[in-house]
Amino acid sequence: MKPDLKVKIGSLTLKNPVITASGTFGYGEEFHESFYDIAKLGAVVTKGISLKPRAGNEMPRVIETASGMLNAIGLANVGLDAFLSDKLPYLARTGAVVIANILGSTVEEYAEVARRLDSAEGVMALEQNISCPNVKCGGLQFGIDPESAAVAVRAVRKAFSRTLIVKLSPQASSIPAMARACEEAGADAISLINTIPAMAIDVRTKKPVLANVTGGLSGPAIKPVALRMVYEAAGAVKIPIIGIGGIMNAADAVEFMLAGASAIQIGTANFVRPMAAMEIIEGIEVYCRENSISRVGELTGALEVRS
């Protein structure tokens, strides 16, 4: 029997738990044109959108490190106006479930972007990024302190009527406290983790490899850290958790679900294997069949901890 892969995130029902992560999927065009029908995904999270366009950081912006990579793109994006006029119509035509990732350097900016996306047709949910490590005012101050986070989340909650997901930084002073603060402020779901601040040095030149000096670490290197944080967040709140961090295959995805995630995001794997997300959907289905799981939701939090 075909397992039921549907999952619920807030008021949103996804056809499967596999979502593509912000900053690894553009605005969907490249994948939809060359690789697969993106409507087959649980959802697509857009590149982070700010009120005004951002050019991003100087080169070099990416470098491979052990079992992963660093990036310091600097939230390069087309800005809200161009997103609404050029990018969103294309995404909407594909039939994909669109989650807009939003950025803000102030509470007011978050609220303004959220308000304008609330009236935009085709944006089913927001993912509020309170955690980008690569810009001076990337919202990271909101990502560390639960009280600041609550202020920013409340403002977006007021401005946006549909599903609101808050994306946490691994730098939060306490993941359980941060998750609870976001839940109380009105978030419908929590996604975590964003990249881990890190750096690489070229011993030949004695210079940092990235122009921005530091960047965000992603890929399999961060998976164990992410799993632990998802496990902690899931134990702290009632709202759904979306697990992110180094997921390369279906087994990785299942690990996150067992730790407490209702859905997962594929990030860096999209760079390594463009078909990764499709392979993972298929792999989750196979896992469910082989383990006699009729609904994928049964996996969420099904971890058996020895007592």
Binding site: R61, N71, I73, A76, N270
Partner: peptide
């Protein structure tokens, strides 16, 4: 030539500057 992660236009790691000073993707 540029270092790049994806080669398909989504990582934005291979940008170079066009004549107007805007970033364009080497891969795309």
């Amino acid at each position: 030539e540029s270092y790049m992660a994806c080669g398909i236009g989504v990582c934005l790691g291979c940008a170079c500057k066009d004549a107007d000073g805007n970033f364009v993707r080497t891969c795309r």
